[in-house]
Design a protein around this nucleic acid. Structure first.
Length: 403
DNA sequence: GCAGATTGCTTTGGGACTCC
DNA sequence: GGAGTCCCAAAGCAATCTGC
């Protein structure tokens, strides 16, 4: 959940960092005179930047999430336990105490697999608290959309697009929603001053903030079905998809803006899948998963997972189905429920692939029933198809494999 | 024996294609 | 253009299995 940080360290760390063999500090030098022309020494370690200023100020900045991943990426989940391990890594490798890390900047965010094209979701996010989203590009982060407020930024990323070419296990439709606090006032108000203040219980505040700010996105729902309406009514709703329309409203009275926001909400409730609310639930689930107490030392949890570790895989989805009954060949209800509770990313990937559009708004138990149904349909339809193509005496590799 | 979980098979609906 | 055919995905339904 915690990603980018910028912290200030006390002056005592100058000699500690300069003496650390993992850090190679460099300075800008005039190549003709040999004179040092900058007032800062800089070193890099796995995406983290270490700066020592001649004034005595020392800063570390970068993504803790990427540091945890060897400086490579931040597309996977970064739980509170992973964060705490990374803080311990700062201590063990650089002798940096979390309580000495005075926060200057903090980014919190969450990666969720959404059941839609991420670009569709991002492109229909129009405003955040009356401020429009701008398209941005960053060497390390790729394309993203950002909304600038005086104390914080809101950012939306398509992580699949950004990382898929480099990492094969990036899930499809992976969206990142992020708040970057560039002023500490809001965080100070809830007692966050240093890295050491980022305790488990405070992460519930982060959940609240992320959900609140996602809810504050003015979103035109691209699943809105209004073809059947009279043209006049349809055009009234379609104009809500235009940034220009909302821009003109922002210039006008607040009442008018609120009226149209209300009308947009009504049309979303009436004619769409309510994508924003769906994504909100996914963000909530994901955060709950990231901040829950670790079970790594829980004996019963380890024992129960031993069963799952005896890898027996579904012949269609290729996921582990050891939690189902012994004779199972296909991922079914209990397996899907297991993944819904323990690996929502995987569950959503399976849901995206096997749940038809018709059931997308159905209750969870119905969705699970239909996902399981479609998985066995796939097995059965494949079997029927193959039986047509192969004559009985012919060697059939598909039959041999049991598909 | 019963309820729920799991599976397999048949039927249905719709899209793509061909032919007249 | 529309009738016929093929193919595929999804829905419907019944049978079997499992745990209590």
């Amino acid at each position: 959940m915690v990603d980018f940080i910028k912290v200030m360290l006390p002056v005592k760390y100058q000699s500690i960092l300069e003496g650390n063999s993992l850090l190679n500090f460099t300075e800008n030098v005039n190549t003709t005179t040999g004179e040092i022309i900058s007032n800062v020494k800089t070193a890099y370690y796995k995406n983290m930047k270490f700066e020592i200023y001649s004034s005595g100020n020392i800063f570390i900045s970068g993504s803790l999430h990427k540091l945890y991943n060897q400086g490579e990426h931040n597309y996977n989940d970064f739980s509170i336990d992973d964060f705490l391990k990374t803080v311990l890594l700062l201590k063990s490798q650089f002798s940096i105490d979390a309580c000495d890390c005075r926060l200057r900047c903090l980014e919190i965010g969450v990666n969720v697999v959404v059941p839609y094209e991420v670009d569709e979701v991002i492109n229909h996010s129009i405003l955040h608290r009356k401020v429009s989203f701008e398209s941005k590009y960053h060497n390390a982060e790729g394309n993203y959309k950002q909304c600038v407020h005086s104390q914080y930024y809101i950012k939306l990323y398509n992580k699949t697009k950004h990382f898929k070419s480099r990492f094969s296990d990036v899930p499809d439709n992976l969206m990142r929603f992020e708040i970057k606090y560039r002023k500490m006032e809001k965080l100070n108000r809830i007692g966050i001053y240093s890295l050491n203040d980022l305790k488990r219980e405070l992460f519930l505040n982060f959940k609240e903030s992320l959900l609140l700010e996602w809810d504050n996105v003015l979103f035109y729902d691209f699943t809105t079905q209004i073809d059947h309406l009279k043209e006049r009514e349809r055009l009234k709703i379609e104009r809500y998809d235009s940034l220009n329309f909302w821009d003109s409203l922002i210039q006008g009275t607040n009442e008018n803006y609120k009226y149209h926001k209300g009308q947009l909400k009504k049309s979303i409730d009436k004619y769409s899948n309510n994508v924003q609310s769906e994504v909100s639930s996914l963000i909530g689930y994901k955060i709950d998963e990231l901040i829950k107490e670790t079970t790594l030392n829980d004996h019963l949890y380890i024992e129960s997972n031993k069963v799952v570790s005896l890898t027996k895989k579904c012949i269609i989805t290729n996921v582990n189905i050891s939690m189902q009954r012994d004779a199972s060949l296909l991922l079914s209800h209990s397996g899907l429920r297991y993944y819904f509770e323990k690996d929502i990313n995987l569950y959503n990937r399976i849901k995206n692939e096997y749940l038809s559009y018709k059931w997308i708004n159905s209750p969870m138990n119905v969705q699970i029933r239909e996902i399981a149904h479609n998985i066995r349909n796939k097995a059965s339809n494949t079997r029927v198809r193959n039986s047509k193509y192969y004559i009985p005496q012919q060697y059939n590799i598909v039959r041999e494999l049991g598909v």
